[in-house]
């Protein structure tokens, strides 16, 4: 299993997204992939066009909440899906570039819209292996 990875976790009505990486920035990149995977298979999304996102929040957990909600906003208003992420976090400021393409019903078969990231199970922790884990439940 590679160090950087994403996964989904169970919630009765909605779904949990989790990213794991060597740094908080990597964990944020992975959790973004987990978010895309709620909607479609990330490998099906071509990283054709790039956009940038900046967020700032009082702490890292609120920054994760803002990051995921900013991604949802960009997906919904641009009608795009994203599959490549480069995140830099300095203190409580996040700068990111994301690459993706317009939603295609035929190729992406999007399963569900994500309404918003939530505070439920919102957590950023350093694991015993020294990796960073970032997660929360998203409402679909």
């Amino acid at each position: 299993m590679s160090v950087q990875r994403w996964e989904h976790f169970h919630h009765q009505a909605d779904i949990g997204v989790r990213g794991i990486g060597r740094t908080i920035s990597e964990a944020f990149e992975q959790v973004a992939l987990a978010l895309t995977a709620v909607i479609t298979v990330p490998k099906k999304v071509k990283p054709l066009d790039a956009i940038s996102i900046q967020c700032e929040a009082p702490d890292h957990e609120l920054l994760l909440f803002d990051w995921l909600n900013a991604l949802i906003y960009e997906m919904m208003t641009r009608r795009m899906l994203f599959s490549r992420f480069e995140v830099t976090i300095e203190k409580i400021c996040l700068q990111a570039t994301l690459w993706g393409e317009s939603i295609s019903n035929k190729r992406h078969q999007p399963a569900v819209e994500v309404k918003g990231a939530t505070f439920t199970e919102l957590r950023i922790v350093k694991t015993t292996e020294g990796l960073w884990l970032a997660q929360c439940i998203v409402d679909v």
Binding site: F65, D66, I72, M76, T77, K115, G116
Partner: peptide, 12 residues
């Protein structure tokens, strides 16, 4: 989307 965005912003 409007309701989702309002919910998210006011939650925070």
């Amino acid at each position: 989307g409007l309701g989702h965005q309002i919910g998210t912003e006011f939650l925070k």
